[in-house]
């Protein structure tokens, strides 16, 4: 089991690096969807053998939403907006990747500090969770396209979700469903807004949304 868990975690790191290094919008959307699938199977290896109905239901729901509905929504928003299929970063891809490695180092360092006295094990998972969160944040600030910012938000949410899983934080089913619903509606509203932005401006470059300032 441990081997499988580690494999999934390494794959998660790779999806993050791909999100940072890829120049194509559609590839980025697919990458975040893949991330959601990996997160969906993670509980199978974390809670070895003790997959309750509750866990199964949550995993199914979140995988369906984050790997199915939301990427579809964002791809549609991008296609209708008729934007070029390019990421257009403010920070170059090579620099992004190097910074990504730095973020990975930082996550390892922070995860070291978060070791719990009694509990052994989730250390690597905490590293990956923090790394995913940080990469999401970095994508939000360093990418111009509105779709990429929505993707960054999703990646960040994925990381936080993984963090909760690492410490086996058990929220009640209702709250977990509420969180999932909120994330879904958030991306839905973002998608609608992206649609309006592209109609209003003929682009969705958020660095050109600069009429409001002091």
């Amino acid at each position: 089991m441990k081997v499988w868990l580690d494999a999934v975690l390494v794959l998660l790191i790779l999806t993050n690096l791909r999100l940072l290094g890829s120049a194509r919008l559609t590839v980025c959307i697919r990458t975040v969807a893949a991330q959601a699938v990996l997160l969906g199977v993670l509980p199978l290896f974390v809670q070895a053998g003790a997959v309750t109905f509750r866990v199964a239901l949550l995993c199914a729901a979140s995988t369906l939403l984050k790997a199915g509905a939301l990427p579809w929504l964002l791809r549609r928003a991008a296609r209708e907006a008729n934007v070029r299929n390019e990421v257009e970063p403010l920070v170059g891809f090579t620099t992004s990747l190097l910074l990504g490695l730095a973020l990975l180092g930082l996550s390892m360092h922070v995860a070291d500090g978060l070791r719990l006295p009694g509990i052994e094990g989730p250390h690597f998972m905490v590293t990956v969770a923090l790394f995913t969160t940080l990469v999401g944040l970095f994508v939000i600030v360093s990418r111009v396209k509105a779709v990429m910012q929505a993707l960054g938000y999703l990646a960040m949410e994925n990381g936080i979700y993984a963090f909760g899983m690492a410490f086996a934080v058990e929220e009640t089913l209702l709250v977990e469903m509420g969180i999932l619903l909120d994330v879904f509606v958030a991306v839905l509203v973002m998608g609608i807004t992206i649609h309006h932005i592209s109609r209003e401006f003929d682009h969705m470059d958020t660095d050109r949304l600069s009429a409001l300032k002091d």
């Binding site: 958030a186 509203v189 309006h196 932005i197 409001l212």
Partner: peptide
Amino acid sequence: SRSLEATWKYLVICSVGIA
């Protein structure tokens, strides 16, 4: 365009904060 810009900033900044 101005209210759209405000809405986008509101959504993204507050969502990240709430995350």
